[in-house]
């Protein structure tokens, strides 16, 4: 059992939450820190947003967290979280407080640093503890040409964000569970003067495929440029981006920057609809991280079908035509408008 009292010697990290779960970037930071902390024997504490001690937070123990502190703040409200953290941690400030170098992590850490008047180091490449227990961070300067290593003086707190996309996430302690503690609500905070009016979704037709949330992807099975035009129409109605395989590119059905695969773009959409794609490894490795895949293909044994959450054995063109008809019946282009507004 770890108690909240360990905070004064703990490594703390601010967890980023995306769509209700802890983001990959946060897991990377846990993995990165666990390797360092493991040697020093210091506990690793995560700071998250939530009302209930859910199992998901306890499961972070597998990656190396010992304790999770949950603040009753809606996920994504960096300003509120950092005010709550400041009140709560004032008595026992942790020697190390880091976050993933994302929009969220930056707002929490840099905001805290400016309020506390301590230095903050954003986008650090590395964090390590040296012989005498002092903490050292490494940052790159001058367009990544020069590295500066800062060793903190004893007693100085470290606030930093760690660069993401560098560490392979690992479950180093299978079966281990973190203790989850809910921090009580400490009363009302003054209202944030900045009001959020809404969000505008990126235009899928022009955005980088790597950033798209929904992708419709076509391959050899679609067979012609006309069918790709249909695919583009479907994409437009769904607010999706169009991607394709190498065959599609060779035939001029898509342009090079729309090719998915190892020699094209590596994508990670929430939903990928794949039409007439057989699934050569070169292509499928490029969509390994898609959350949900629906594949439509005539050949049931195509490798793509084995990677799909829903595999549909049918003629791709027919399915596209039918889908367009249904979407039109449900209100033409509604999907797109809905996407723009939410």
């Amino acid at each position: 059992m770890v108690s909240v009292g360990v905070l004064s010697e703990a490594f703390c990290l601010v967890l980023e939450q995306e769509a209700g779960s802890v983001s990959e970037a946060s897991l990377e930071v846990i993995t990165e820190l666990y390797g360092r902390v493991g040697r020093q024997g210091r506990p690793l504490v995560g700071i998250g947003c939530g009302e209930q001690p859910t199992a998901e937070f306890a499961l972070l123990g597998e990656y190396g967290l010992d304790l999770v502190l949950l603040f009753p703040v809606p996920a994504g409200w960096a300003t509120v979280l950092r005010r709550r953290m400041k009140t709560y941690l004032d008595r026992q400030w942790p020697p190390v407080l880091v976050a993933p170098a994302t929009l969220w992590g930056e707002e929490v850490v840099l905001g805290l640093a400016s309020e506390l008047d301590v230095p903050a180091f954003s986008n650090c490449m590395q964090l390590e503890t040296v012989e005498n227990g002092a903490v050292r961070v490494e940052r790159l300067f001058y367009e990544e040409k020069i590295a500066v290593r800062y060793t903190l003086a004893p007693g100085s707190p470290l606030l930093a964000t760690l660069a993401v996309g560098l560490t392979n996430v690992r479950r180093r302690r299978p079966g281990h569970r973190a203790e989850v503690v809910c921090v009580p609500d400490t009363g009302r905070l003054p209202a944030d003067p900045v009001t959020v009016l809404g969000r505008i979704k990126a235009d899928p037709r022009t955005m980088d495929l790597e950033e798209a949330d929904v992708i419709v992807c076509g391959g050899r099975g679609l067979g012609s440029a006309e069918n790709f035009a249909l695919l583009a129409k479907l994409a437009d109605m769904l607010g999706a981006a169009v991607g394709g395989t190498r065959v599609a590119r060779d035939n001029g059905w898509i342009t090079a920057e729309r090719q998915i695969g190892q020699t094209g773009k590596v994508v990670k959409p929430e939903l990928l609809l794949s039409f007439g794609v057989s699934g050569a490894t070169q292509h499928t490795i490029g969509l390994r991280d898609s959350r949900r895949i629906v594949a439509v293909n005539k050949d049931k044994n195509a490798p793509m079908m084995k990677l799909a959450d829903v595999a549909i054995v049918a003629d791709a063109r027919e399915v596209i035509v039918e889908l367009i008809r249904r979407l039109e019946a449900a209100g033409a282009g509604l999907g797109r408008r809905a996407a723009r507004q939410n």
Partner: peptide, 12 residues
């Protein structure tokens, strides 16, 4: 706040 600051060529 710092004990030491060291500069090297970056190794991304």
């Amino acid at each position: 706040w710092l004990a030491d600051m060291e500069m090297t060529r970056a190794r991304p």
